[in-house]
Design a protein around this nucleic acid. Sequence first.
DNA 1: GTCACTTTCTGACTGTCAGTCATTTTAAGT
DNA 2: ACTTAAAATGACTGACAGTCAGAAAGTGAC
Lengths: 230, 230
Amino acid sequence: MSKEDRKAREKERRRNQIIDAAELVIFSKSLEQATMDEIAEEAELSKGTLYLYFENKTDLYIAITQRGSELLNSKFAKVFAGAHDYTGLELVKMMGETYLNFVEEYPNYFTAFMYYESISDVEALKNSEYAKQCDQNRREALNFMIRALQIGMQDGSVDDSYEPKELATIIFASTRGLTAMTHASGRGHHFELLDDMKVGMSTLFENFLNLLVEGMASKKELKISENSSK
Amino acid sequence: MSKEDRKAREKERRRNQIIDAAELVIFSKSLEQATMDEIAEEAELSKGTLYLYFENKTDLYIAITQRGSELLNSKFAKVFAGAHDYTGLELVKMMGETYLNFVEEYPNYFTAFMYYESISDVEALKNSEYAKQCDQNRREALNFMIRALQIGMQDGSVDDSYEPKELATIIFASTRGLTAMTHASGRGHHFELLDDMKVGMSTLFENFLNLLVEGMASKKELKISENSSK
DNA sequence: GTCACTTTCTGACTGTCAGTCATTTTAAGT
DNA sequence: ACTTAAAATGACTGACAGTCAGAAAGTGAC
């Protein structure tokens, strides 16, 4: 049925055209200051049309968020494409770095992530197809991390007394906290902690990873040496 | 000048009365769904009056955020009130637990924190006196953590090869990431990771702290035993 | 090429709500 | 009681998200 196929493709194109326009307008100002009329004009469509493709303004912004999460996951996937040459622990570090680079390269997508997470009106999420995909993508990202940890536990680089899922969640959540800070201080936003201390974000992040790695690295050799000294 | 004092106090009382009402209304719904008219009615004042005390709706919500940050800091202060009996490392852990408890006890304040951090319109922040206080409170919270670390470096419980400020920032940011996840999964919000894995948040958090602690604990004895085994 | 029918698009319109401001009310001072 | 200053009011405005009746474009049959 190339007929319905083509139609579906065209619909998809329109959708993307709208999201493109929305990114342009919203990223140049902010969600609150951007209006649907502006976005419609940028997309060279009428406002009414936007509502044929998106439930409402929030839904449209979540579609942008979804794009961002897709992009981030593709970066993670790339890391894993060359996974053979690295230990699991190295993969974990690389994922962390990938995350940080993403935030620095696409701060606007990260702003969208932050907004998405701050949505307190749960109903608004339930009605959004894009929100479901965002969540799905997050699960997928977490699975990457779980895989990295499992590899690490196999090759002995990661302490296998942790539950991989649990450890992955911890690493993910804490890394997100770090990146959120990077993001905040990257603009004139909020308390400029990093300006106060004369420490670059990359140094900070490196230390963070070291801290984590130190905590999760396999303790086997150390344990042996500990015992042997007693 | 007890005259101006009293006036100032009354003004402060009005202000609090409005914030009380705003909390009641906004917490029961959400920021978007709450209207200024409702808040005014709840406060038994007219809408116009709200604007004598707050720049705009966002500013009012930031005032709530500020309250929350004040409350959180008071909890941190309590931890330090009994600091003598604990090592620096223990204090760090206790601060983490305090944070987690706060999120569980006052999820609405944490929602406000999340919103505050997601504000992408920087101008809106610049105009808010409350925003400045929020930032100030954050700095203060960070100082608590720095002090805990310094104590730890003194008593030998914390690895002193780190820069205290830097380490404090890392711990804070990553802990925030964890608490944000706790918060999200505490409601029907977003991907219910924690439901998937049959792991309680408190267990997860405990492991997180262990991981951090493991990484930042003083390595001196270990290093000695490592050397002695070679 | 035209008619019938469906799908897509339009933009004027509506309702809601944040924020304003001329006017009133209350308080304080003399 | 009168004056002046400060605080509070609520009707009003402007802006904007979201709607919907009707126009336009596309499709296919004859």
